[in-house]
Write a protein that binds this DNA or RNA. Structure first.
Lengths: 231, 231
DNA sequence: CTGAATCCGACACGATACTG
DNA sequence: CAGTATCGTGTCGGATTCAG
């Protein structure tokens, strides 16, 4: 969506889309938001199927727009890319896209589809924060897919976040990406039975809380009022 | 961004972008959110420079994605397009794009640029709601550009909204789109002097409140804490 | 006059291969 | 590791045409 004849009309939405509306731009921003600073080849790998040519172009565009900063030290081969403040301010855009994607555009994964649990797991924190889900206490839920693929879903008393590499938690789950996503996709009343097939350790109360809290779907008919108040 | 090889990877953001990432899609949604149901030619006019061919294609795509509904009665010439619930749920996406656009991608309008005050005025409500700006009482500010281009910026005690066609308000402003946008773009401390050149009627207290409240820019260094908490 | 369809050219993008 | 180069395809802009 870029250089060729802009949207015309003086509108902040159109202006924003002129800057980050091209294909891949927001996916790159999402990656840098979630994973922190990344190298060229990290990005090449973590985005699905972008070609080096387009990654180069998009990174140059994002750099020119002051959304991404390039970090190349002399005498070091790697180049690191990280978000500027302006880029970090795109977090609400990425998060509202994630929410809408979860609620309206996320069918179960296809059988052969490559399935990286990083994005789905991070989406849990986004969903719980946006819905203002709070626990009466801090909590850490550790989800482990392999020795080097461990995520900690954490509630600090205020907000939810997801980090990597943690090992201690009130609940510890061992599962596969497929099982995990199927658990997250299940409506709340079905999550208990989906949880059966995962290996879960922890105090029974903590496990109950985990199953009741962590997931993408709302309880149906709990609050039918949509928040679509808009002029 | 469409049919040709999707983003791969199971990620709600990527999925959402596969559905509404093409050029014009979100601009069409923005228009239907702001102006309500529209006819084909209304959309053709209110978006800047989309061609009928692409408007047709995008509307078909949005219809297939269950974001837009087509309303064609037999024996009536016009076809009306309106958002479904799924489409209305895109409001947070459009609003966060508007916020980012205002804060990071909105230079003053170019001299000859066509300037429709509808989008800028609506953006005021989005900004004030997102920043949780509240007044101790309800209020209505009427901005008039011409006899048939009158907008009411209204605070109902909870949220801000913008409607058309109102004529009664605590404050009444008569101005041009250029003057109005230049007022909105000014930092809060400069708004008073920008307001001098507009014709403003109303109780002095109400006018002071209007000038102090309505605008796009934050007071500088008021709250330096950015809300960019994110994993 | 509204709601499109058609043809054509420009360029954004995808796939593969190759280089410093 | 971090890109370029080349080539083909798809998406989009612009103008024109057409039917109800």
């Amino acid at each position: 969506m870029a250089k060729t004849k802009f949207y015309q009309h003086y509108c902040p939405v159109a202006r924003a889309l002129e800057v980050i509306g091209e294909k891949w731009s927001l996916v790159i921003v999402r990656d840098l938001l979630l994973r922190g600073p990344q190298r060229f080849s990290d990005l090449l790998r973590s985005e699905g199927g972008i070609t080096p040519k387009w990654l180069t172009l998009r990174l140059r565009d994002l750099e020119a727009a002051d959304i991404v900063e390039r970090d190349s030290e002399a005498g070091r081969r790697e180049v690191w890319y990280r978000l500027t403040d302006k880029g970090r301010d795109l977090a609400p855009v990425v998060e509202s896209l994630a929410i809408w994607g979860i609620e309206h555009a996320l069918p179960p994964p296809l059988p052969g589809e490559p399935l990286d649990p990083a994005q789905p797991t991070n989406a849990v924190a986004i969903v719980l924060n946006r819905r203002h889900v709070k626990l009466p206490h801090a909590a850490t839920y550790v989800v482990s897919f392999a020795a080097d693929r461990i995520y900690a879903i954490r509630f600090d008393g205020e907000r939810w976040s997801v980090q990597r590499g943690d090992d201690e938690g009130d609940v510890r789950v061992e599962t596969s990406p497929q099982e995990w996503v199927s658990f997250l996709l299940a409506p709340p009343e079905e999550r208990r039975e989906r949880a059966e097939s995962m290996r879960i350790e922890g105090e029974p109360d903590a496990v109950r809380e985990f199953v009741a809290t962590v997931g993408w779907r709302r309880a149906p008919a709990q609050a039918p009022a949509l928040q679509t108040v808009h002029a």
